[in-house]
């Protein structure tokens, strides 16, 4: 059986467009609201990344940090995150869910327990920001046994030799970080350059799906549409923050944003 992540890419390819991946922080701004957001954007997005908020995130820029601190302040716990996924997966037509977080949260839960719980609630993939290759080899194997993809991150600093090795060990999906930046930085590299790097990676193993993320907004998304998939995170988190500030409904605003993003890549 294909992993739902593979199916999502297949479907997007059939429609001649990149898959749209959204990133929101679990529990932002509350447990219930983040579930409602997932349910609402589910129609337009192909894959949903859900961030596990951490209070010392060394790779996140200010927008995602704000979302994470807000969620933690509002009491989100790891069990709540599993609850959110479980509830979301009860939808008639749920999209694949990728949990994205920092290793300490998994380490404290215990790798085995964590993966069992992921399987049980319906998590399809994992991104662990601070568990790079080769440190993640043993964890990747455990994920594979549960048919959960461990998604490898690739960066502009990753050497050719390292790219080859990582991609060889990787599961069916990889994540290319567009530029040297934490999440949410301004796109400081031209889309052309990003796509050039992207195709170099893609060539190593064309069968594996590669998504691009970091710094993608409504403005830039169209110029990257040749990729297998595109991740938008900080722009969505920012939309939630702005909505709260303006006392507007984050759910409708985020839904509108995701709809617009989707429209740009059709």
């Amino acid at each position: 059986m294909l992993n739902p992540i593979d199916l999502a890419f297949k479907k997007a390819k059939k429609e001649n467009r990149p898959a749209l991946l959204t990133y929101t922080v679990a529990g932002d701004s509350t447990k219930n609201q983040s579930l409602i957001i997932l349910n609402t954007i589910s129609k337009h997005a192909d894959i949903l990344e859900l961030g596990i908020p951490h209070n010392t995130p060394v790779a996140d820029g200010s927008q995602i940090q704000t979302s994470a601190y807000r969620a933690i302040k509002n009491g989100i716990k790891i069990e709540d995150i599993f609850w959110i996924v479980k509830k979301y997966k009860k939808n008639k037509n749920p999209k694949p869910i990728i949990l994205m977080g920092y290793y300490n949260m998994i380490f404290q839960y215990g790798e085995k327990n964590f993966l069992e719980k992921c399987k049980k609630v319906g998590v399809d993939g994992l991104i662990v920001v601070d568990l790079p290759w080769p440190e993640n080899k043993s964890f990747a194997k455990k994920c594979k046994k549960k048919s959960i993809y461990l998604i490898q991150l690739l960066s502009p600093t990753t050497s050719k030799e390292r790219l080859n090795k990582i991609i060889k060990d990787s599961h069916a999906m990889n994540y290319f970080i567009s530029m040297l930046s934490t999440t949410g930085g301004k796109l400081k590299v031209s889309p052309k350059k990003i796509m050039l790097n992207y195709f170099k990676i893609k060539k190593i193993n064309p069968k594996k799906n590669v998504v691009i993320g970091f710094g993608i907004t409504e403005k830039s998304i169209k110029s990257l549409k040749k990729a297998d998939g595109l991740v938008v995170g900080s722009a969505i988190c920012k939309e939630i923050s702005v909505s709260i500030q303006k006392r507007q409904n984050p759910v409708t605003n985020v839904a509108n944003l995701v709809k617009k993003l989707k429209y740009k890549i059709l």
Partner: peptide, 19 residues
């Protein structure tokens, strides 16, 4: 891999910092 006593330390860093 940079662990003392196979347990402490290491390199839990984002991919970008590996190089």
């Amino acid at each position: 891999l940079g662990f003392w006593g196979n347990k402490f330390g290491g390199n839990f860093v984002p991919e970008t910092l590996k190089k």
